[in-house]
Amino acid sequence: MRIYTRTGDDGTTGLFLGSRVSKADVLVDAYGDIDEAVSLLGVARASCADPRLARLLLDRQRELFVAAADLATNPAHRDRLKPGISLMTQDTLDLLERLIDELVRERPLRPVFVVPGATATSAAIDHARTVVRRAERHVVQAQDAGHGVSPLVLRYLNRLSDLAFVLARHAAGDVTEEASHD
Rank of each mutant, 00 (worst) to 15 (best):
M88D: 09
P111E: 11
A72E: 06
R78L: 15
R107A: 06
L56A: 03
A72F: 05
L53H: 00
V104Y: 01
D50I: 01
D91S: 15
A68I: 04
L71R: 11
E97Q: 13
D59T: 08
A49N: 09
L99S: 10
D50P: 06
R60S: 11
R2P: 14
L95P: 00
R110S: 13
D25H: 14
T12Q: 12
P75Y: 12
D33Y: 06
L95S: 13
R78A: 06
G84P: 11
L103R: 05
T12H: 06
R2I: 13
V38T: 12
V66Y: 09
S86I: 05
R20Q: 09
V28L: 06
D35I: 04
L57R: 02
P75R: 11
V38K: 05
E36A: 14
G18I: 09
L56G: 00
D59V: 02
G14C: 10
S19T: 15
A30Y: 08
A72R: 05
L57H: 04
T5C: 05
F65Q: 13
L96V: 01
S39M: 01
E97H: 07
I85D: 13
R6S: 09
L53N: 05
Y31S: 05
Q61S: 02
L109F: 01
S86L: 07
A68N: 06
G8H: 09
L95I: 03
R107N: 12
R110T: 14
V43C: 04
R52W: 07
A68L: 10
L71W: 08
D101R: 12
R62Y: 05
Y31N: 02
T89Q: 09
I34N: 02
V66S: 10
G42H: 00
L64M: 11
G11R: 10
R52I: 10
L71G: 11
S19Q: 14
I85P: 00
A49K: 12
A67R: 07
P116I: 02
A30C: 07
T12M: 09
D59Y: 02
A24W: 06
G84L: 12
E106M: 06
E106G: 14
E97M: 07
T73W: 12
A68D: 02
R6L: 02
R45E: 10
P51F: 06
L57G: 01
G42C: 00
D29P: 08
R80D: 07
F16D: 03
K23V: 07
E102P: 01
Q61I: 05
D91H: 13
L81K: 15
G14D: 15
F65T: 11
C48V: 03
E106T: 03
N74K: 10
V26H: 12
A54T: 04
D70Y: 06
L57E: 01
T92R: 15
R62P: 00
A67I: 08
L41K: 03
A68W: 02
R20W: 05
L15H: 09
I85H: 14
P116C: 03
L93M: 05
H77F: 15
Y4W: 11
V21L: 08
R6M: 02
P75F: 13
R80L: 14
V112M: 05
T73Y: 13
A76D: 15
L40D: 03
L15T: 10
V114R: 06
